[in-house]
Amino acid sequence: MQRMQLSYKYINLIITIVLFFALFAVGSVLYNGFFSTQVLLNMLIDNAFLIITAIGMTFVLIIGGIDISVGSVIALVCMLSAYLLEMQHLSAMIVIPGMLLMGFLFGVAQGSFIHFFNIQPFIVTLAGMFLARGLCYVISIDTIMITDPFYQFIATYRIPLPFDNFISISVVIAFALVLAALYLINYTKFGRAIYAIGGNAQSAMLMGLPVGRTKVLVYGLNGFCSALAGIVFSFYMLSGYGLHAMGLEMDAIASAVIGGTPLTGGVGFVTGTLFGVLIQGVIQTLIMFQGTLSSWWTKIAVAFLLCLFIVLQRIVVSRKERTKSIS
């Protein structure tokens, strides 16, 4: 009985991790060349930006909010950095910190609207989404290619690993963020306050936790993550364009949910989110290896998983409610 109970919170996480390895195994059996470290690493290289933004999203979801502006913020960061680098000839050393600061402040502004004016997060970040996407077009309607040598260097540099494997610098950044996020959420007062507020904001207030400050900072942190994802994305694309990262917010939310973070707040796993992204990666790779299926199968598969996990979470919650009312 104890064991059964132990698993329910982690059930999504466990299913996700098992599913990831199962899918990888299926690919390895079916396709030649699938089973290699580099295939796995390529998933990371191609999805580094998604990992980064999905982690920011995880924080927001744990605190019981949502942020649908992240895709647009990524596009804005790409566009603005391209503009500043190419048109204004600013140094990357100025542009990168500037972008990170901008993302943070953008998030803080959204968080402030949500907390102080008590407006639904969905609506506030909807406005933020329009704003960021619109500002891209104010800068330019066309694609701006990035030719800055520093960006070029980072984009093309491959960090060699043993056995002829390699990763990109973006992967290193993503993993650094994963570690930082794990530390933040498990070993700091701020991190635990996020869980407490997401679990029960009223109680958290009565327990004397700084609810407002934490909430605003979480949105700020998410803004920072999207800006970082934007920079990584601009390494990946080497261009700024208004249509970049279209709909990425939904991928980020889906990754978090599949990784065991429900949209009801109070629960969430950074590791889970990482695997949520990787599951999408492995599905993409499978479809690529299969060759005849087109890429939209990824979306359907992801949505199917999403649906499965949401219903699963709902069942867990209602079972909890029922046992509570009986006891």
Binding site: Y195, G199, N200, L206, V267
Partner: peptide
């Protein structure tokens, strides 16, 4: 008025 999603110790 506690956060039931956190551990007892927390």
């Amino acid at each position: 008025n506690l956060c039931s999603n956190l551990s007892v110790a927390e």
